[in-house]
Computed example of a mutant assay.
Amino acid sequence: MPRPVRVVLLHGSQLSGAQWARYEALLGPDVDVVVPDLPAHGSRRGEPFTWEAALAVVGEAVEGGDPSVPVVLVGHSLGGYLAMAWASEHPTRLAGLGLLGATAVPAGPGAALYRGIARLEGRLGVDRMSRALDRQFDTLLPDELAALIKEAGYGFDGIPAAWDGVMTRCRPSMLAAVTCPVLLVAGQFDQLRVDARRFARAARSARWVRSVTVHHGLHVFPLTHPHDTAAALWELVTAAREPASP
């Protein structure tokens, strides 16, 4: 039998663990898929978002299973930056690290872009933003998945604090001491892929670093291209099952 692997999947901002609804089936048996909701999102919408609270949720998800089972930590967008931050504090703990749509240095023009988005969402209000996201997901996703995401709800309150944390704390250098394999995945048209090479170079202690482009993918490619994304993640699962080099 294949060695069991625990895969923790962290969602992007505004969304929830529901975004990963198809991944348990795609990753297959002997893979324990864990999809926590971050503070101010999904089932935790009533909790304020703080960087420390979010990292605590990540830690609980990573450490919540059998300690003998290797853990792969994967995050999309906000979740990717949090995954990198957690890994930087526990550089030898993981069997694999996947950053999806999270390889733009969040400073300079990129930071200005996200501050502008946060201000726009504040002006539009929750109802209009919810309707806009509903329309987007109705267009892009199968009906069943779109319904799951809408039912889980959107987390808007935590956006300013979440992206302020990303912009002030997260840099490629956080990967410097991480020893596990590192996988960088981005959509072909993903605005947060622009610094992938810098992130790859920064992961100088990693067992290996690989970059994957999901063709025709936007920033939401984990939702719209689940088979391509799961195929990329399978590299981390396979690596986690291999014995570490002496």
Rank of each mutant, 00 (worst) to 15 (best):
V209P: 00
M167I: 09
T213C: 06
R135C: 05
I149W: 04
L120S: 09
D195P: 06
L133I: 11
V194Y: 09
E144T: 05
D164Q: 14
T224P: 00
A177I: 04
E151I: 03
H215L: 15
G187V: 00
A152P: 01
H215F: 14
A118T: 15
A152F: 08
F137Q: 02
P181E: 00
A203K: 10
A112S: 11
A203T: 06
L148K: 11
A200N: 09
L120G: 10
R204V: 11
A196N: 12
C180T: 01
A176T: 07
V126Q: 10
G108Q: 06
L218E: 10
R193D: 03
C180F: 04
R135E: 14
C170Y: 02
A107T: 12
V182W: 05
D164E: 15
A231L: 04
A146I: 06
A230L: 12
M129Q: 13
C180L: 04
G116H: 07
M129K: 11
V105F: 13
T103Q: 00
W163I: 03
C170L: 09
D143K: 12
V166A: 03
H216P: 02
L140T: 06
R135M: 08
E151M: 07
T213Y: 00
A152E: 08
L175V: 01
L141E: 02
A176R: 06
R119G: 13
D157W: 14
P226C: 01
G155A: 13
F221L: 00
P172M: 05
G187W: 00
R207Q: 14
Y154E: 06
R131L: 15
A104N: 12
F137A: 02
Y114I: 14
S205L: 05
P226I: 01
R119S: 14
P106C: 13
A132K: 07
R131I: 09
F199V: 03
M167T: 14
L223D: 01
G153D: 13
D195E: 03
A177D: 12
L113I: 11
G122T: 10
L183E: 13
R197K: 14
F137E: 01
A176V: 05
A104R: 15
P222T: 06
G153A: 13
I117V: 15
A203L: 08
A161K: 07
G125C: 08
R131Q: 15
A146L: 01
A177M: 07
I159W: 08
V194E: 13
